[in-house]
Design a binder for these strands. Structure first.
Length: 800
RNA sequence: GCCGGUGUGUCGGAAUGGCAGACGAGAUAGACUCAAAAUCUAUUAUCCGCAAGGGUGUGUGGGUUCAAGUCCCACCACCGGCACCA
């Protein structure tokens, strides 16, 4: 058969669409399977081969599931709010709505060209008011449940994008979007109290099946630590200095205290401080440093003694000096620590710079050289002396502190509350009104969606105000509570908002009465299998798990975790082995590949190129290899002879069905395809196959290369679609050969192979091994010490 | 620094403790062709040998085992996450 992929692919894409065979049924007796891929941001550049790989994994699994009789939901949509469309608007004056619609259209065409079996009747666009209506609704629900608060804060600010960024978007001190240096700026910030869900987010990981590295990244992100809070009395001051420590056992080793330069006691008791000028100068110096400089450039410790404030050791009554130093952060723990230089390297370094006492309380190290963080018998520690396990010392110390009422066990998380506003136009407006009388007032539910107004100018205002602030007709409003004149919030939500709940909307994308119909959610949720990039494992996934858990707590969704299983695909690198990027000119456009080789070849290649979860470089030559394979498949109908099974191929077919079925489940697509390549090599060696065997072959290959398989299927005179045919079954008994070739080793070295009947008796196997000429020659004059026979595997003769 | 992962031909990569290198690519030779491409056939880890055959080989060094790419210990390199986190 001539393999005219272009016309074949067009033809079958049309038929699939006409027959609507990929539409999920909301009511069905079949078992459900909900497969989710990360919906794309529809960028102007169009799709990337990385998208093709990202979607092909669950595409194959979804197609296989349908053939296995499942009711499959495999949806797609567009995460279309975001900065690029807005930046494009600023530059070219084209409204983001226009570019977004254009890009979505382009992406849709490309996705369809690849032949993905998405349910196109459920497409979501986060910028559609019928969608962001419910994004705003969830925000209001959070507001109602005290998960939203407003605070002035030093925020990460990108002077180039003129926008406030979350810690997540400004990792490494660089803006995630434009890579400019971040500066610190005081701003009003809307926060979501995600920290309230820290423990739930951590515990929930026990209920789900995420790849181990994915789970670990989430755990690191949440960053739970257990320790104790201790309240230190301050000399002559009523207030206590509360600290957090993971090493309460070292309390007797405290020789000074350190507080963050922004710690409130510094301003509260400013009049007691004798070196105010020095301290203020230091505070200013620290404020100038960005978070990046403070945390990433770990070098010399700096700090200033707070003269006039002195702590008192809760157990010894000793007076302890207090320092302000920027190696202690206001944002973690209580912003104050007890310093134990003998057993903490940072405190040790600081003590060395300021000539402070280093008091050993755990023996076993050499504290003249460095801090000792290991275990050892305790010394200089009163009631703890002699105890040599950290665990016991900690629990005794906490017991003592609790008994004295000056401390307790506690936990801390690295995760911070989520800065949720952006000074941008192209996002969901935050549905809040600022009233001079009533303060902050939520927009009533019946006024949702709060639509984005039409705007001509997209430039952010000076000082990073949202472009919405310039639209008087939007800003001016009546207070929903008192009816007086009020002003709308002009900030919008971050891009993470829309993607935090989209998987729920797919269940019922046109629902007018809520996020989705509860019964439909009960049927479809949770997502059975979610695949996406490693880069979304912490931010997007933590955020969406948080939203989902909140919705569960208020009874809006039926299950506590949104995703039952999560996997991630590896990147496709450029042919030169580095990340694809426009500037390097190594980007591969899927359109070009489809034009030249066809969608089936592209799909086959991205799955065959290597381990699905690992990064692998693009190779045009290997693409051609996949094309050759499909051409050989297209030639199979020409060598069909008869029906039933070909004796020489029978067990190979059963083995291949088993291998492909199992490998697909484990996302080992590369070996599944290799198994089919191996089988086709055998078929051409034999020179023929039966009609029934061809039927098996095309059904096995259909999830990977569906267009070609439909064409062959139709050519065989089958009535229905191959995509709707039954997945082939295998007979386990027929996957085993009657005869096996096994290795014969002498002293562990391969010395020959012999053919044996399957499950051959040990004695018979040994007899045949000894009968082999080569083996016999090797055994000449040797004494056999031991004979090992592993049935159907190997014989090892140990000789002397 | 802490935590995870990976290390196999020329390349992408296969191998429930049991014949290392499946499958694909590339290369070499041959067939077809005026020629090239495509296609087909054969060879393709490495060293010694004319050959039969033998030695060595999965980052490095040890160990367990009849048998180790696979298990254990130590180390090296690379990738990823977290990080003055108290």
């Amino acid at each position: 058969m001539k393999y005219d992929f272009a016309s074949i692919e067009q033809k079958w894409q049309k038929k699939w669409e006409e027959q609507g065979i990929f539409h999920a049924q909301d009511k069905s007796d079949k078992k459900k399977f909900y497969a989710l891929v990360e919906f794309p941001y529809p960028s102007g550049a169009g799709m990337h081969v990385g998208h093709i790989k990202a979607y092909s994994g669950l595409e194959v699994i979804s197609r296989k599931r349908r053939m296995q009789g499942y009711n499959v939901l495999f949806p797609i949509g567009f995460d279309a709010f975001g900065l690029p469309a807005e930046n494009y608007a600023i530059k070219n004056g084209v409204h983001p709505r226009v570019t977004t619609d254009r890009n979505i259209k382009h992406f849709t065409e490309q996705l369809k060209r690849a032949g993905f079996s998405f349910d196109w009747s459920r497409v979501i666009d986060t910028t559609d008011e019928n969608y962001y209506h419910w994004t705003q609704w969830i925000f209001l629900k959070m507001f109602e449940n005290d998960l939203v608060f407003r605070d002035k804060a030093l925020v990460n600010y990108c002077p180039s994008c003129k926008v406030v960024l979350s810690n997540e978007d400004s990792q490494g001190g660089k803006c995630d979007i434009c890579h400019s240096d971040i500066i610190q700026k005081e701003k009003d910030v809307w926060y979501l109290r995600i920290t309230r869900y820290a423990d739930k987010l951590l515990k929930g990981l026990d209920e789900v099946d995420y790849l181990p590295n994915i789970r670990q990244q989430q755990e690191n992100w949440i960053g739970k630590s257990t320790g104790a809070f201790v309240n230190f009395a301050l000399d002559g001051i009523e207030d206590k200095l509360r600290i957090y420590t993971t090493r309460p056992d070292t309390l007797f080793g405290v020789t000074f205290m350190v507080i963050a330069p922004e710690h409130p006691i510094l301003s509260k008791y400013a009049d007691r401080i004798r070196n105010r000028a020095e301290l203020e100068a230091y505070q200013q110096q620290c404020q100038k440093k960005t978070e990046f400089e403070r945390t990433q450039l770990v070098k010399d410790k700096t700090g200033v003694r707070v003269e006039g404030i002195c702590a008192i050791h809760p157990l010894t009554g000793e007076k302890i000096p207090v320092f302000a130093a920027d190696y202690v952060m206001m944002g973690y723990g209580t912003g104050a620590i007890m310093a134990v230089p003998a057993h903490d390297q940072r405190d040790y370094d600081f003590a060395k710079v300021y000539g402070l006492e280093i008091r050993e309380v755990i023996s076993g190290g050499d504290i003249s050289a460095e801090a000792y963080t290991g275990d050892g018998p305790m010394v200089n520690s009163d009631f703890l002396n002699g105890i040599s396990t950290k665990k016991e010392a900690i629990s005794r110390m906490i017991g003592k502190l609790e008994q004295m009422g000056i401390g307790e066990e506690g936990v801390q998380f690295k995760m911070k509350d989520w800065a949720f506003n952006r000074q941008r136009y192209w996002g969901e407006p935050i549905p809040i009104v600022h009233c001079p009388h009533c303060g902050i007032v939520p927009v009533p539910y019946d006024q949702l969606p709060l639509k984005l107004p039409e705007v001509k100018e997209f430039e952010p205002g000076e000082g990073g105000e949202s472009p919405l602030a310039k639209i008087e007709s939007f800003v001016r409003c009546k207070c929903p509570r008192c009816g007086g004149n009020a002003r709308r919030e002009t900030d919008t939500m971050p891009q993470w908002a829309g993607s935090s709940w989209y998987f729920i909307r797919y269940v019922d994308p046109h629902c007018k009465t809520g996020i989705a119909d509860y019964d439909k959610m009960k049927y479809w949720l949770p997502v059975d299998w979610y695949n996406g990039g490693m880069e979304h494992v912490t931010r997007h996934m933590i955020y969406s798990r948080f939203w989902h858990k909140f919705l569960y707590d208020i009874g809006e969704v039926p299950c506590p975790e949104p995703y039952a299983k999560r996997t991630a695909q590896g990147l496709i690198l450029g042919a030169n082995g580095v990340k694809m990027s426009k500037s390097l000119g190594n980007v591969v456009d899927p359109n070009d590949v489809i034009d030249q080789y066809g969608a089936d070849t592209l799909r086959t290649y991205v799955l065959f190129m290597g381990d699905y979860a690992s990064a692998a470089p693009w190779s045009e030559d290997s693409v051609k290899g996949c094309k050759r394979f499909l051409e050989r498949v297209a030639d199979l109908p020409g060598i069909v002879r008869g029906t039933g099974s070909t004796p020489k191929l029978e067990s190979s077919f059963h083995k291949t069905i088993k291998k492909v079925s199992e490998d697909i489940e484990e996302m080992k697509f590369n070996t599944a395809i290799a198994a089919m390549m191996k089988l086709i090599n055998e078929i051409f060696e034999v020179g023929q196959l039966t009609r029934d065997e061809l039927s098996i072959f095309v059904r096995l290959l259909c999830p990977v290369a569906p267009h070609l398989c439909e064409e062959i299927w139709a050519g065989m005179g089958e009535k229905g679609l191959c995509s709707a045919a039954a997945w082939p079954e295998y007979d386990p008994a027929k996957t085993v050969d009657r005869e096996v070739e096994i290795a014969v080793q002498i002293n562990g070295k391969l010395r020959g192979t012999i053919k044996l009947p399957m499950d051959c008796e040990k004695d018979e196997a040994l007899r045949l091994a000894h009968a082999d000429e080569r083996i016999a020659a090797q055994l000449e004059g040797k004494t056999i010490v031991k004979e090992i026979v592993v049935p159907n595997k190997i014989i090892n003769l140990v000789v002397r």
